[in-house]
Every structure is written in structure tokens, then in C-alpha cells.
Nucleic acid binder design. Sequence first.
RNA 1: GCGGCCUUAGCUCAGUUGGUUAGAGCACUAGAUUGUGAUUCUAGGGGUCGCGGGUUCGAAUCCCGUAGGCCGCCCCA
Length: 439
Amino acid sequence: MAQFQSLPGFREFYPDAFARRNHVFRLWRQTAHTFGFQEYDAPVLEPLDLYKAKSGDEIETQLFSFTDKGGREVALRPEMTPTVCRLVGAKANALKRPIKWFSIAEFYRYERAQKGRERAFFQYNCDIFGEPGPEAEIELIALLVQSIRGFGLGAQDFYVRLSDRNLWFYYLEALGFNEAQTRGILGAIDKYEKMGDDAFKAYDEAHGALDSGKKDKVIAFLKVKSLAALEETLAAFPGDKITARLADWRKLLGGLGAMGLAEFIEVDFGVVRGLAYYTGFVFEAFDRKGELRAIAGGGRYDDLVQKLGGPALPAVGFAIGDVTMGLLLEQRGLMPAFTSTTDVYAVIGGEAERAAAFADIHSLRADGFRVEYPIKDTAFGKQFKAAADAGAKLALIYGGDELAKGVVKVRDLGARTEMEVPRDQVSSVVRDFFSGGAE
RNA sequence: GCGGCCUUAGCUCAGUUGGUUAGAGCACUAGAUUGUGAUUCUAGGGGUCGCGGGUUCGAAUCCCGUAGGCCGCCCCA
């Protein structure tokens, strides 16, 4: 058996798997471009401190980190956000606003692999920098929806759960929680859906048992699932901050509604996202059946660029992972089968006919056609089978009889018809077939 | 890092109470078929039975360890 195996959680892409990966990347890239986002890339290996600065020392246990030969503490990138913040921060004053960037890149996390989670995976990251208002969220969430919908998935297949850490902060502040308690409560909210009441255990241990009246109010807010319910719940807590924030909510939902995306969006205050650096709207995309891990996650992080050494620059972004996205597409039968895209197959009689065929083969390839031929002498029957297997539309037949007459037989493999063409016209006949033809 | 289940050909699997040289289907290669894609038939290549150790006259089979896979927990940027 194989003496060497790939490392756990690292994937190998055989041609059929690579074709599926390309299909996903192509749609993402094309969709981002239609929204006016520009593509970038950055180093795979970064200073370890870049991630510690953002997420704290304990993050190191989740990283592929090591000391390089120059004594530098480094890590394979586990995410793009710190990197893109550095890139944007370094040139913030020279970049036209709003800054709309995306990337498709591989990331590495030292975690136990599970369904939908590998140690090496790709993410499609989209971010908008420089716009503090909900207009940026409208643009970004519209892109998120379209980047999933574009595969043929509909509102019956996935949805985006939309929440707001600001309103959570305002609400908990109004209930009298201090900053540390608020962090504890947000941690409990994050786990509540999975664990139920046990989610508050960690809070109770750290801050003392939660007053049952306050707990009911927290749970009531966590169950807010619509703008109307949100307005109703907050009516008891009047104030300028909350009034202004509700106006942002109406603008955001109004904008997404005007784009025709209302059916993809659900208000859900059960979402807070674990990361401390999110500062406003947060959202996650899920499959409707609830069978898979989150397809995408994102939110606003207005302080991060500055925290990482750049200027104060508001930002909002999301990432879609390729693993869960691929699982969902395969579940719904939306991952296209791997098909070869050969245009022309040259059927060659034998060694004597090879030279004539090679001249046309190379000429057609130089013109951009995808041309295949048998690499060594093969029976005619096998060659036609190979042509069909390769998905070729046309076969060019270089047999002794044809070449003696100065012609090449051109066979339309779909229509199963053929005609003889003088050799010097082969190129133009092929060109006509593909330009005037079906596709 | 913790727990459960699993591992025989490229893939899906069979393999009797432990008994000769480990099988099938699919896939691949070739032939039937030096001039036309299907079907069919025939043949072939491909295995240190995940790896290491133990029990035994004898291990794919029983025992121990270990690696890998799947699933769950922790975590999830």
C-alpha cells in the first residue's frame, strides 16, 4: 500500500474533484465581479502575532504554527480578515472608497476534522471597507445571497440569519449588565440554541446565578425573529441609540427587500457569533434543512483595522467555506458532473498519416481549439470510442484513403454524419462548425 | 485534547467454527474487430488483508498496541 499518506484533514484534488472546485470558484469569482468587487491575494504564512493580536494567545492551539529558520514565530493563515485589514490599512488613504475586495484562498486550522470541516479548506472572503452605514451591509449581504443562489439554490434551500450585536449591547446595558457580564451573556446566547438552559451555566459560575427575571428578558430577546417583534420588545427601552439603530434596521431590511431578497433573510437574535471583534450587524447562512454546518458567516468589525495598526476604518465582511458549500450542492444535485470539453478528436490511420494530422492538430490548437489524438497507433474503433468518451464534437479522420485524395474526412460526432474536406480547408471548416454551430 | 464505530483490489463489498494459492461486481488495459462510437463475449494487470506485535501446527479471521477514516464532544475566526 501507499507508504505515504496525505496529512489528516488535508485534501487531494483528483481531476474530477478539481473540476467541482473550479466550478464553485468560478461562480464566486464571477459573482463578486458583477458586484464590482476586486480580487486580491496575500501570503499563506504570516507572523504568529498577527493572529494573537486579534484573537488572543489561546488561538495558537488552533493554528499550524512553528518557528522558522530565522527564529521567527509564524503561522499558516487560519483566516483572511487580519491579513486583509493589514493590506487595506497600509494603503487606506490611497484607495478609492468604498473599498470592495474579495479573495478565494486556502486556510489552515489545527483542529479535529469533522463533517464539513477539514484542516485545510478554501474560503471566499468578501469585505467592504470605509462605509460605516447599513448601506454596506445591503451590498454585502446581497452579494452573499447571490454567491450561493447563483448555483441554483433557492430560498427553500438556504437562508441568512441576521442579528445585531449593537442592539444586544444596548439591551443588556438597559437591563443593567456590566461589560464583563455582557460578554458572559453573549457567550450563553451563542450556545443557547444547541444547549438550551445549560448555556447559562458558565455565566452563573463566573458572575453568580442570573436573576430569573433578567434571564427571561434575555431569552425573550434571543427569540426575536422579526422586525416587528424587535420594535415591540425595545419599545420598553426608549432612547436615542436604540431609536437610531432601529432606523438602521429598517434601512437594511428595506434595501434587501427592494433587491427582492426578503425571502432569504430572517431576523434572528439567537445569532451573536463567538468572536469578540464584531461590532454591529452579524449574520450566518445555513441550509434550510439544518443538516449542515454554517455555509457562511460574517459581520461588521469597525475597530479591527485600527487595532491591527491601521487607521480607523469601518469594515464589514463575510466568508463562505468551500467544504459545506460543496456538500450542500452535492446534496441538491447541483454539482455538475465532470465532463471533458474536447472540441476535436483526430483519428489517425497509422504512422504514415501522423505527420499530416500533426500539422492540422497543432494549427487548430494554436487557434484555441481543444484537440486530442491517440498518442500511439490504435485501432479505428478504439479511436472513435475515445473521441466519444472525450466529449469531442468533431472527428477529423486522417486515413490512408483520404490523404491519397488530398482530403480529410470530417465527422460530426453528434449528428453522426461526415463529409470530405480538402486538406487546406480543414481549419476553416472546423472554425465554421464551432462559430456557427450549437454552442 | 476526549469518546463511539470502522479499515480486505482504484471504488463498493464477500470471505463459513481459525485450515491449501484471498474472491465478486464496477472501473482500467488488451483481444474478438489495420476504417467508425452501442451491446456482448474473452483475457489480463492490480492485494505485504492499514501497520506492528502476540496466541496458534496454522491468522484476513482471536488478543494487544498503533495509524488512518467516519461520527460526536471541546472549539469554530
